[in-house]
Amino acid sequence: MPFNIWCGGCNSMIAKGVRFNAEKKQVGNYYSTKIWSFTMKSACCKHEIVIQTDPKNCEYVIISGAQRKTEEFDIEDAETFALPADEERGKLADPFYRLEHEGEDLQKKKEAEPVLVRLQRVSDARHSDDYSLNKALRAQLRNQKKRVAEEEFVSKKLGLGIRLLPATEEDAAIAARMKFSSKFERNRKEKRALINAASIFPGSSGSSLSDKKRLELGSKRRKIKAGTASELLTRGFKPSSWLKSSVSSSQSRGCQWLQDTSR
């Protein structure tokens, strides 16, 4: 399809560039150029569409079965040139019209000529020595590769997975103005002690205590545990009543067994 069209059967759009299996036949001549007709069926509703070539205007014409989609565009957005209208073309062919506007064209040429000359000189100066330009470019690439390798080495040394940008004076000034609080370590220890002293059961009676009381209770518990451990180490281990009863029962059983064997 040479352009976007609306199908005459179901009113759906058929985009430009869609291929069809068409029946091609000659329907006439424009001087010595043949006029071809293409008959095809749309894929959406099997509606028959007929398109012919127009050698006079160098385009295609829809004969039946469809309607061409009207599209408008801005010349600047499309980055194209506007062709002169038929009237302008006729004026350019008129010698009197060209004579009247020849002075304006020459004036525009004189105004633009110095700029063109300067641009040509700059271009010649830049591209006069290819060897020096190539040498400068290769040196720039070598320096860039060296800088990238140094940045990657520094990032690997710091254990980072990304490449750091080079330090600037602004970064150094900001780093010098940064001051860290000296109470950070103490606050961290207090929070850690508070977490250790807190109860693991939600809604307990200890949860209503304040943070200071929890810290005090935790310190007291640690002191009590340390005191009991030192007493056990210095005075020795005292067996409990259950252990004493188990030892006495085992001794009595041993004596009873000896008496039975002697009999």
Rank of each mutant, 00 (worst) to 15 (best):
W6V: 12
C7I: 00
C10Q: 01
S12R: 13
S12D: 06
M13R: 12
M13V: 15
I14D: 10
I14W: 09
V18C: 07
N21T: 14
V27E: 11
Y30N: 02
F38E: 04
F38W: 12
M40E: 01
S42V: 03
C45P: 06
K46G: 09
V50P: 01
Q52W: 00
T53C: 02
P55I: 00
K56F: 09
K56V: 13
K56Y: 12
C58T: 15
Y60D: 00
Y60H: 05
I63S: 05
I63G: 08
Q67F: 10
Q67G: 15
T70D: 09
T70G: 04
T70I: 14
D74Q: 04
D74K: 04
I75L: 05
E76T: 08
E76V: 07
P84E: 02
G90L: 08
G90A: 14
A93P: 01
F96W: 10
F96H: 05
Y97D: 03
R98T: 14
E100V: 15
E104P: 07
E104V: 08
D105M: 08
L106E: 00
Q107V: 01
K108W: 09
K108P: 06
K108D: 15
A112H: 00
A112R: 00
E113V: 01
L116G: 03
V117Q: 02
R118L: 04
L119P: 03
L119G: 06
R121Q: 04
S123E: 15
A125W: 10
S128F: 14
D129V: 02
N134K: 12
K135F: 14
K135R: 14
Q140A: 13
Q140V: 03
L141A: 15
Q144G: 07
Q144E: 11
R147P: 06
A149E: 02
E150H: 08
E152G: 02
L158G: 12
L160K: 08
L160C: 02
I162L: 10
L165G: 06
P166E: 07
T168G: 10
D171R: 00
A172S: 05
A173S: 03
I174V: 14
I174M: 12
A175M: 04
R177V: 01
K179H: 12
F180S: 08
S182F: 10
F184R: 06
N187M: 09
N187K: 07
K189Y: 11
E190M: 09
K191Y: 07
K191D: 07
I195M: 10
A197S: 14
A197T: 08
I200D: 10
I200N: 10
P202T: 13
G203W: 05
G203V: 07
S205Y: 11
S205P: 06
S207V: 15
L209S: 09
L209Y: 12
D211R: 03
K213N: 06
K213W: 10
R214C: 07
R214T: 11
L215C: 03
E216H: 05
E216L: 05
R222C: 07
R222Y: 14
K223R: 03
A226M: 11
T228M: 11
T228H: 09
E231V: 07
L232P: 12
L232C: 14
L233V: 12
T234D: 14
T234M: 08
R235Y: 15
F237T: 10
K238S: 13
W242R: 09
L243D: 13
K244D: 06
S245I: 14
S245M: 11
S246A: 14
S250G: 10
S250H: 13
Q251S: 11
S252I: 13
S252E: 11
C255R: 13
Q256V: 02
W257V: 09
T261V: 11
S262M: 09
